[in-house]
Design a protein around this nucleic acid. Structure first.
Lengths: 408, 408
DNA sequence: TGGATCTCGGTAAGCGCTTACCGGCCGATC
DNA sequence: GATCGGCCGGTAAGCGCTTACCGAGATCCA
């Protein structure tokens, strides 16, 4: 009697309840809404959350489920009359096909998974300002936005998951996520190469700012050019002679590339690079602040300019320097990397290397989508351009220098 | 011959290819990897992306698919030996069940949809600083983080989607999203009440900071208390006599509640409230800045204190005031609402009403999860507490006043 | 006008799981 | 020692779609 059950043919006469036929089933304590005389038992069941299925549509439209499916998916070329009847039934019932059933049948879920790394809880050296590092979310979230915008164009959705670094349950979660979608986009450092390879056998995988592997495709930005441009600017245009690079995670490919590019350009230009394990901020504001605090506590001389692995840690550096009354850029110039939106809200406005954050995400999706579609898709890594954004913190005049405008 | 195809029983003798049986199928140009003599045709097909299915596991383990399923889902109580053989086969094949198939069969997708409203592109009055409003994402993203953290505890994933306000394709997208998940969490103002009701018939729906409806559950925070506390603080503690509330969207329930609470408290305390349509920033930094610019351009007197509908617009107010050399809090005090992470990075640090952003998200998920589980779940709206965070921009001493610490 | 061809609905076989039901085996019970 | 449950595996029926295949009718051309 349930209008939602497929196997029931036309046998159930409209308006005639046949109690006997229901006996075959075990007593499910169904309210048995017997309403004789109802000419058309409308298929909306108030309490029951059961949705109309394609069978309901077919019955109401007086066609087969195949026709319904064909109309809805634009296959073949249904007769106008058929199409009309189906569409009418669809809108009458408010039918929307179930995602899982479509996915199972069509072997396409129209979902891509995104895994980001959740930053660990950080306690700042002074226990004050950086008690939570939620700001660092901005970068990942902007990338995700880019992914989503691109995904929408293809009617895909984003299934997001974040992992901590305890690694406890993470692997299981990522792998089961993989089976809920058609492909995966992994932010930097969420999985080691061995597991990555295993994962890539399950679904197509695109890494963001990761290490290229034979079975995955990487999308990143041109760290080297941007960083070299920044180094040249600091040394040649501003004439700074001692510089330092405040690094990110030592296992981050982005960080390594930036460090190498900065160092080699600084040295090529004959300036001095302060180096060593002390210069590591791990991409966090708290980390950047801590480096400065320790330098000052140890009475070590600061460099004339500090290039940070990202804007986030630059923010910490700016904060710490300001706390100690050190003028930026007067005494120490500071630069970041990324150009997150808040970089321009800092005082002084932060000079940084812009990478096209949203575009990074959008590109990652497009690449993944190609991978999902064809078996033999282009497996070439993608590198997006970066460019120096001159603001105040490097010593450039405020209000955006002419070069910055010209580059736009 | 495909080891992944369920219907093939044990008939295919190991190591014996039967070409004739494949003829029934149309020529699919299968490479026909005939390797006689292979004692155990290992089920890993190199090129083919086809994953092992539960049938493969059952065959390798020498049990039925029901047993495999029972072992993996911990149903009944399989004999230790059975369990062991299944688990061994699972790990040998690297089997992970397909999400769509599970969802279809178990009638549970373990996915909740989240819809956020993407802010429209905004052009700032001076065309410079606020060219993109990506900062405003922080609030939504923090909520999403909260949702995700709660979801992870239940092995659910988040399917995110954003909508613009053109409304063009939005409705279709939201409804089809609904059929890809077990329930939906909607941020403020993504759907009008009529459509909301229709959506709620499809899946359980929880709104965030929305309007309560009979068929959805709302999770929000206690705007009234927080705002009243702020008003009292500004008037009673600081003695400000003229104040203004810089509003958000006029159709935002949060905004309306905040406006009402602020106004009534200010008036109750006998101070003057500047009012009118001019005082609307629409939650954006650019909007907040524009209000100030217009006030100044029209030579209208500014109030002694401005409470903004959210931190975002407070940021714009601070920016505009600073641009004009107006001292904060010396000449005009400013306060926000939300306590987004960057509130404390502003100079001066922003006094604001904190709402537990992540907790809002986590609560929304928990409520939704309850709705998904039971049919007759608690349909009671939830209101989370807010509290005033005193920082510098209201006139309190820097370094967080004693009250703020005590309240923690 | 008769067959070849084309068009378009319907039938039914999956997609890869979960689970109701059945039945064989076992120890416990009388 | 026959009976009765309890335990546990297997069988098979779905879950709600898509689509290969078939066949009836319409169309076409000789």
């Amino acid at each position: 009697m349930n209008p939602t059950s497929p196997p029931v043919p036309e046998s159930a006469l409209p308006g005639l309840a046949v109690p006997g036929s229901a006996v075959a089933e075990p007593a499910v304590s169904e309210p048995a809404l017997i309403e004789p005389g109802l000419t058309e038992p409308v298929v909306t069941e108030p309490g029951v959350p059961g949705q109309p299925t394609i069978y309901d549509v077919a019955r109401v439209a007086g066609v087969s489920i195949a026709s319904v499916s064909r109309v809805l998916n634009g296959r073949r070329n249904p007769r106008p009359e058929t199409r009309e009847r189906v569409l009418e039934a669809v809108s009458e019932l408010g039918f929307i096909p179930d995602g899982a059933a479509r996915a199972l049948s069509a072997r396409l879920k129209e979902v891509v998974g995104v895994v980001i790394r959740r930053p660990p809880p950080v306690t700042a050296p002074d226990g004050s300002v950086f008690e939570d590092e939620e700001l660092s979310l901005q970068f990942s979230d902007l990338i995700n936005r880019g992914i989503e915008i691109a995904a929408q164009r293809r009617d895909f959705n984003l299934l997001v998951s974040s992992v901590g670094l305890d690694g406890h349950d993470e692997e299981r979660r990522i792998f089961s996520l993989a089976r809920k979608c058609d492909g995966l986009i992994l932010h930097d450092r969420v999985l080691d190469p061995a597991r990555l390879a295993r994962l890539a056998r399950l679904v197509p995988v695109v890494t963001l700012a990761g290490t290229p592997t034979p079975t995955t495709v990487n999308v990143g930005s041109d760290n080297a050019s941007g960083m070299a441009e920044l180094a040249r600017h600091l040394v040649r245009d501003h004439g700074y002679r001692t510089l330092a690079y405040l690094g990110g995670y030592s296992d981050s490919p982005d960080n390594l590339a930036r460090a190498a590019a900065f160092a080699s350009q600084v040295r090529a230009d004959g300036a001095t690079l302060l180096d060593g394990p002390a210069w590591r901020g791990n991409y966090f504001a708290a980390g950047g602040a801590r480096v400065i605090e320790r330098m000052l506590a140890a009475r070590q001389p600061l460099p004339r300019a500090i290039a940070c692995a990202n804007d986030q840690s630059a923010l910490g550096v700016v904060y710490a320097l300001t706390q100690h009354g050190i003028a930026i850029p007067g005494e120490v110039a500071v630069a970041g990397f990324d150009d997150i939106p808040m970089a321009r809200h800092l005082r002084p406005q932060l000079t940084t290397v812009r990478q096209p954050i949203q575009e990074l995400g959008a590109t990652a999706f497009d690449v993944l989508h190609a991978l999902i579609g064809e078996d033999r898709a282009d497996r070439a890594d993608v590198m997006l351009p970066t460019r120096l954004i001159r603001r105040e913190s490097c010593g450039c005049p405020s209000g955006a220098g002419p070069l910055a405008r010209a580059a736009g």
